[in-house]
């Protein structure tokens, strides 16, 4: 069994008593080597989860184990994190920024990777003069040149045009594949990540609602259409009736009666939207996404 890139146990974070919980009771596991899409609506807790994993925040409760360790000093050199707003020092030039990356990551810095990714950028331009896309490229160059075991990217593609998005995503995937880096990318637009990711975490309302290999999560659900009738023993996530016709997204418990129902595999997007529209649907974690300690305790 491969190790876990992230393993959260009862993870909770609040930014102050009045503001409620940004994240609550999160337990999940992300196996190493995966490209994981962290999806959820705005304000779901995605950024908080990533900042906790990056060691920028201290959890209010619970633990998050990253690359097998909870020692932040040990984790820090092995994790790269790009925050949503792509923070960079505006007064430094592109060359200065890459130089600073080398100074701050002396043990792992890959200057060739940094130069390769930042190649299209004007080296002597100040960061404050760069466009959103150029800033993203520079931030990714810093993150990749660190040669991390785990990359945490918060809305990495948000301010890129489709062409640049495609290009940078390709670059990211190639680098990740070559060095078997685990990547977690958050987005509130699934289509941005679909196709690139083989793992899925749906965070909503501060909780993890779906977790596991994309294929397995999809396969655990079925889109059924038929005459209105009881769907027990299957778990119904969402159902819609049109006249006498019932369409439902279910988690089958045992085989679905193929005579009575038209069964189809839902698309990932249908699956996520159905879950977001039904906040009371029970969470689903595939076996690989279960936190081991939680499993042992159960």
């Amino acid at each position: 069994m491969t190790g876990a890139a992230i393993e959260a146990n009862g993870l909770g974070m609040t930014y102050g008593r009045k503001r409620g919980w940004a994240l609550r009771d999160c337990s999940f596991r992300l196996p190493a080597g995966r490209i994981c899409a962290l999806v959820g609506p705005n304000g779901a807790g995605k950024s908080t989860l990533l900042a906790l994993a990056a060691g920028l925040l201290r959890p209010t409760e619970g633990t998050v184990r990253v690359l097998g360790s909870t020692d932040r000093a040990e984790i820090r050199p092995r994790v790269a994190y790009v925050a949503q707003d792509k923070p960079l020092y505006p007064q430094l030039t592109v060359a200065d920024t890459l130089w600073a990356g080398r100074e701050l990551n002396p043990a792992t810095w890959d200057a060739d990777a940094a130069d390769r990714i930042a190649a299209p950028l004007p080296r002597d331009a100040k960061v404050r003069t760069l466009s959103g896309g150029q800033r993203t490229r520079l931030a990714l160059a810093l993150a990749l040149a660190k040669r991390p075991g785990l990359m945490l990217l918060d809305e990495p593609m948000a301010d890129l045009d489709p062409l640049a998005r495609h290009q940078l995503m390709g670059l990211l995937m190639a680098e990740a594949a070559e060095h078997s880096t685990t990547i977690v990318m958050s987005s509130h637009i699934l289509t941005e990540l679909e196709g690139a990711c083989d793992y899925l975490l749906l965070v909503d309302g501060g909780r993890v609602r779906l977790g596991g290999e994309s294929e397995d999560v999809v396969a655990a659900h079925a889109l059924v259409t038929g005459q209105v009738r009881d769907l027990a023993p299957h778990t119904v996530i969402e159902s819609r009736t049109t006249g006498r016709q019932l369409t439902a997204l279910i988690r089958p418990d045992g085989p679905v009666d193929a005579a009575a129902w038209d069964v189809a595999e839902p698309s990932l997007e249908e699956l996520l939207l159905a879950h977001l529209r039904s906040p009371d649907a029970p969470p689903l974690l595939t076996p690989s996404a279960h936190a081991r300690e939680a499993v042992a305790a159960a």
Binding site: G55, A83, P87, L88, K146
Partner: peptide, 14 residues
């Protein structure tokens, strides 16, 4: 204030 601490602290420096 500007969030650049997130950049500084996600390098190999505590």
């Amino acid at each position: 204030e500007t969030g650049t601490y997130k950049l500084a602290w996600s390098q190999s420096v505590t």
